[in-house]
């Protein structure tokens, strides 16, 4: 029988969306197979922080103020001990910036098989199918160690797990894990602005070189806010300085998995498409009917983004009002 430990990432006292997703997905699989699930969260929590978590299990909460912004070294030390004490077989971590830093530390410390970016398969099978070489090759990886670590993004379908049960929360004493001379100190976190990371957005409107300039992204901001989504960019738009690198989607940027991806003035280089392999519906707006983006799109329109987008904004407004 498997025993899952879910790392519940906390930021500002709340559990991240990705972690809630991961928890519910693990609960769903575990309920079907009768497996055990526990969670771990570090740092002070707001009273309602665990409200979105359903199902049976124990959540270990290390509530120390010092863990509000934990270094991956401390987290790794705590989790290594917890996994050993509890004899967990599988650890599931959301593929956020923090999760991606933590997972390999933990894999090394526990000699565990790290499987990340898996696009299919269940946790039980352990087989991980993922894209490599810019999305041109689909590879199947198999864990070879006793303990497995899954780094899960939003590549997989979101779970609609509901249960009358609630996990119960117990205090975890993290004091023994602090080292007096920790040489990494996270001084501050400056949120670029209040926008959430595009890696978590369900709808993304992205612009490329075809946008023609920094100012034109206002159009995309408008369309995105209308749809409740985020704005992304291709590498050329980032290299032009029109958008920050944190908005870049593609091989040297982020991989995203939104329900809807609207590519505006993006030609569709293979490096950009590598970041979209998990997007569910792709819409392309481009003036070149032969642009490769149309081969990766479900819906397309040929035209100048500066004309198409304002018109599309009006049409979308109309559709949404009728609803």
């Amino acid at each position: 029988m498997a025993y899952y430990l879910v790392f519940l990432e906390q930021r500002d006292g709340f559990i991240s969306n990705v972690a809630v997703d991961v928890w519910n997905r693990v609960q769903q699989e575990a309920t079907q197979s009768g497996d055990k699930v526990s969670g771990f969260v570090a740092g002070p929590l707001k009273p309602t922080a665990l409200a979105d978590l359903y199902g049976n299990g124990t959540i270990y909460h290390a509530s120390d103020e010092a863990l509000a912004l934990p270094s991956s070294t401390v987290l790794c030390r705590i989790l290594t001990t917890l996994v050993a004490e509890e004899a967990c077989s599988d650890i599931v971590i959301g593929a956020t910036v923090t999760g991606k830093r933590l997972a390999p530390c933990l894999a090394e410390a526990l000699h565990a098989s790290l499987l990340g970016g898996c696009t299919g398969g269940s946790l039980q099978s352990g087989l991980c199918r993922r894209y490599i070489y810019s999305g041109l090759v689909l590879a199947a990886y198999q864990p070879a160690a006793k303990i497995r670590i899954f780094l899960q993004g939003r590549e997989q379908l979101r779970s609609a797990f509901m249960s009358p049960d609630r996990p119960h929360c117990v205090f975890f004493d993290a004091a023994p894990f602090f080292v007096p001379h920790d040489n990494l100190f996270i001084r501050s976190i400056t949120a670029g602005d209040s926008r959430r990371s595009i890696a978590e957005a369900n709808i993304i409107v992205a612009g490329g070189r075809g946008m023609g300039g920094k100012d034109q992204f206002v159009l995309l901001e408008e369309l995105a806010s209308l749809l409740g989504g985020g704005v992304g960019a291709s590498r050329s738009a980032v290299d032009e300085g029109w958008r920050p690198h944190s908005d870049q989607i593609g091989q040297t940027g982020k991989s995203v998995a939104p329900d809807l991806y609207i590519a505006c003035g993006i030609s569709g280089a293979v490096q950009h498409l590598a970041g979209l392999s998990s997007a569910r519906t792709v819409v392309a707006v481009n003036s070149d009917p032969h642009a490769p983006i149309f081969d990766a799109a479900d819906y397309g329109i040929v035209g100048d983004v500066r004309e198409v987008i304002p018109a599309l904004i009006e049409e979308v407004k109309e559709v949404l009002e009728k609803k």
Partner: peptide, 28 residues
């Protein structure tokens, strides 16, 4: 190794794009 590559296949997926003539049609 802790992880082994079991198999690989080339991805040749190409979506069939449904083209809209106007922004109104696309929104629809």
């Amino acid at each position: 190794p802790l992880v082994r590559l079991r198999s690989a296949e080339l991805v040749l997926s190409r979506k069939s794009c449904c083209f809209a003539a106007t922004p109104a049609e696309l929104a629809g």
